[in-house]
Simulated scan of single mutants.
Amino acid sequence: MSTTVPDSVAWNQQAFQEIVSNDAGRPVLFTNARIVTADPLVGTMTGADVLLVGSVIVGVGPGIVTAAQDDNAIVVDCTGTTVVPAVVDTVALAGGRERRAQYVATLTPGNTADLLVVPDGLAEDIPGAVATLFTRPAEVRALVAAGTPVLWAGTDVPGRGTAPATGVPAAQDLTGSPRVGIWIDREDFLHQELTAGGRYDETRGGRPHAYQGRYWIDGDRIDYLDDLGFWAFGEFVGDELHHAGYVMKLG
């Protein structure tokens, strides 16, 4: 992707340009930071590094910079800043998970590279750093989602994703879609008809019109808005539709 660096970008400007123009898959190293990993094994480190390759964290700790330079990494000097997970596993932070393998939003090698970089004085802990993002975004040094900058030096990154517009979307025209039809679960209990006009109609246990409403398909995801007002979700997996514990196939 080719992105012009805004005039307002002063923090690690060259590194930012290299990151957004990184077509060669070079690693990206955030170095010399205080890192609050939220991982109970790794803990918090000072003067440490986080190494990203694509959308994944591949290394955390001191001394990675030497190897990263050997690998032609893009180096982001984070002196005076704290790096925290951008997605917070509040259940884990409150002690609600028993095993480390269950911690899903930590700066742990193998996890998705979602991280937030904030000046030390505004990031005493993870909640403080996240609060800075919402109350003083101009002070944020970097917000990275799956390895891609979203916010840099307090400025929105050009070409960043935008949130969907608020409100219920318009109906989709699904004429000709292979996913239109009647989906039936393995026990023949649930029949879910998806129409080309974006409406669904469920028969449950022989009870017709048990639930009716609108639906939208986005890739392999399907969202339902029932006429009663609640939202639900499903996923297409191969030739199956998984929804609320049911596994269905086209009848």
Results as ranks from 00 to 15, higher is better:
Met1Ile: 07
Thr4Ser: 08
Ala15Asp: 07
Phe16Asp: 04
Val28Glu: 06
Leu29Thr: 12
Leu29Ser: 12
Arg34Ser: 09
Ile35Ala: 06
Val42Met: 06
Ala48Gly: 12
Asp49Val: 04
Leu51Val: 15
Leu51Phe: 15
Val53Leu: 08
Val58Pro: 08
Gly63Ser: 15
Ile64Val: 15
Ala67Pro: 00
Ala67Val: 04
Ile74Trp: 02
Cys78Ile: 09
Thr79Asn: 13
Thr82Ile: 12
Thr82Met: 11
Val87Gly: 07
Asp89Arg: 05
Asp89Ile: 08
Ala92Lys: 03
Ala94Pro: 02
Arg97Glu: 06
Glu98Ile: 11
Val104Asn: 01
Val117Gly: 00
Leu122Phe: 02
Glu124Tyr: 05
Ala129Lys: 00
Ala131Lys: 05
Ala131Trp: 04
Thr132Leu: 02
Thr132His: 07
Phe134Glu: 13
Arg136His: 06
Pro137Cys: 04
Pro137Thr: 05
Val144Trp: 03
Val144Gly: 00
Gly147Phe: 01
Pro149Met: 13
Pro149Thr: 01
Val150Glu: 02
Ala153Met: 04
Ala163His: 07
Gly167Pro: 10
Gly167Lys: 07
Leu174Ser: 09
Val180Ile: 13
Trp183Gln: 10
Trp183Met: 10
Arg186Ser: 10
Gln192Cys: 14
Ala196Ile: 03
Gly198Asn: 02
Gly206Cys: 08
Arg207Ser: 13
His209Leu: 08
His209Glu: 09
Gly213Pro: 10
Arg214Gln: 15
Trp216Cys: 14
Tyr224Phe: 15
Leu225Cys: 08
Phe230Ile: 11
Phe230Ala: 09
Gly238Asp: 09
Asp239Tyr: 05
